[in-house]
């Protein structure tokens, strides 16, 4: 445990979603450990990872919830969407079915997150060009139509993995700067850790909303 209160200015919550076997956990592992996990078993329920990055000289701690792609976890992992500032939606460029299911993943994301949640589409396994089933142009078009950011990446070579996480953070940070995110609302997925001491809060309201307990 460190004695300094915080070595970062913000916390952003991310989720990673998409069909089973598209490489969600490998993308996370590549991002947090800078290594490729060769034989990656199916995630059970949900996994978690963090890394501190820098945007605009501000240190940002990413808290990343990596959900299982197996169908039996689909309903229960919806809990984790709530309060996500960023959603990385992953498909596998060598398996068309994982691309075809994107609209259902997108519907879930839109329904369960807030309108400012940044959604980044990742076409993983870009190193496997010879078995490609989804063209770059097609996915780019889908992303444009739905207002998503988009990159093809490879968890194996590491290509564009870093970029996807960082671009998402930059867009979230931009939303904060432009006042689109309410940092006091838990569903924004962003927490601010003021680093300068002596900075005081201006809210005077007493926390008196506890009497509505339904127990």
């Amino acid at each position: 445990m460190s004695s300094t209160p915080y070595n970062y200015n913000y916390i952003f919550k991310y989720i990673i979603i998409g069909d089973m076997g598209v490489g969600k956990s490998c993308i996370l592992h590549q991002f947090t450990e800078k290594k490729f996990m060769a034989n990656c078993p199916h995630t059970i329920g949900v996994e978690f990872g963090t890394r501190i990055i820098e945007v605009d000289d501000k240190k940002i701690k990413l808290q990343i919830w990596d959900t299982a792609g197996q169908e039996r976890f689909r309903a229960v992992t919806r809990s984790y969407y709530r309060g996500a500032a960023g959603a990385l939606m992953v498909y596998d460029i060598t398996r068309r079915s994982t691309y075809n299911h994107l609209s259902s993943w997108l519907t879930d994301t839109r329904n369960l997150t807030n309108p400012n949640t940044v959604i980044f589409l990742i076409g993983n396994k870009s190193d496997l060009e010879s078995t490609r089933e989804v063209t770059y142009e097609e996915a780019e078009e889908f992303a444009k139509e739905n207002g998503l950011m988009f990159l093809e990446a490879s968890a194996m070579t590491g290509q564009n993995v870093e970029e996807a996480f960082l671009e998402t953070a930059r867009r979230i940070y931009q939303n904060i700067q432009e006042g689109r995110l309410d940092l006091n609302a838990s569903e924004s997925g962003v927490q601010h850790r003021p680093s300068q001491p002596g900075r005081t809060s201006l809210t005077n309201e007493a926390p008196n909303n506890k009497d509505q307990c339904s127990c």
Binding site: V46, E47, F48, T50, Q63, A75, V76, R78, S79, R82
Partner: peptide, 18 residues
């Protein structure tokens, strides 16, 4: 690991599946 173990299920989810 700590984050995973400290995460608490939202009450509404627990009630829905119950």
């Amino acid at each position: 690991m700590e984050e995973l173990l400290n995460e608490v299920v939202p009450q509404e989810d627990l009630e829905r599946f119950e």
